[in-house]
Simulated assay, not measured.
Amino acid sequence: MALLRYKNDKYLKQEESRQELGFGKQVGEAQRLVNRDGSFNVKRVGSSILDRINIYHELITCTWPQFFMIVVVYFMVVNLLFAGLYNVIGMEHLQGADMSTPTMRFMDAFFFSAQTLTTVGYGRIAPTGLLMSTVASLESLLGLMGFAIATGLLYGRFSRPIAHILYSDKAVVAPYLDMTGLMFRIVNARDNQIIDLSVEVNLSMLQKDEHGRKTRSYNRLHLERSQVNFFPGSWTIVHPITDESPLFGMSQEELLEKHAEFLILIKGTEDTFNQTVHSRSSYHAEEVIFGQKFVSMFGEIDSSGHVVLDLSKLSETNPVPLASELFPEE
Rank of each mutant, 00 (worst) to 15 (best):
G28L: 10
K214V: 11
T276P: 00
G249D: 14
P232I: 06
Y11A: 08
G181Y: 00
I266L: 03
R36S: 03
E329L: 12
M205Y: 07
V27F: 06
V88W: 13
T118N: 04
T272M: 05
L94R: 02
V120I: 05
H164I: 14
P328C: 08
C62S: 06
E257N: 11
L33M: 14
V228N: 05
I89R: 08
L3H: 11
R216V: 06
E254F: 04
G129M: 02
P102V: 04
R52H: 08
L142D: 02
A189L: 07
R44C: 01
R36C: 00
C62A: 05
N229V: 12
M183K: 12
L256F: 06
G249E: 10
Q292T: 00
V72A: 13
G96I: 00
F147G: 03
L117K: 06
G181Q: 01
K25E: 10
A323V: 13
V238T: 15
S133A: 09
G156E: 13
I194L: 12
W235S: 15
K170C: 10
T116M: 04
T317S: 13
Q275V: 00
G121V: 04
K10Q: 08
F106W: 10
Y155F: 15
V307Y: 12
L314K: 14
D302Q: 09
S296V: 02
K208C: 05
L21D: 12
R124G: 11
T116A: 06
R280S: 04
F298K: 09
M69H: 03
L255E: 00
T151W: 07
S159D: 15
I162H: 10
A189P: 00
M132Y: 02
K13Y: 03
L117H: 06
Y218A: 09
L141Y: 13
F111N: 11
S133Y: 01
A148F: 08
I53Y: 07
M107V: 09
Q31C: 07
E270H: 14
G90R: 02
Y86R: 06
G96E: 00
G96S: 03
L309C: 15
F327C: 14
R52A: 04
L309N: 09
S279R: 08
D196W: 13
L153C: 08
G305H: 08
F262A: 02
I165C: 03
G46M: 03
N202Y: 06
P175L: 00
Q227C: 11
A83E: 01
E20M: 14
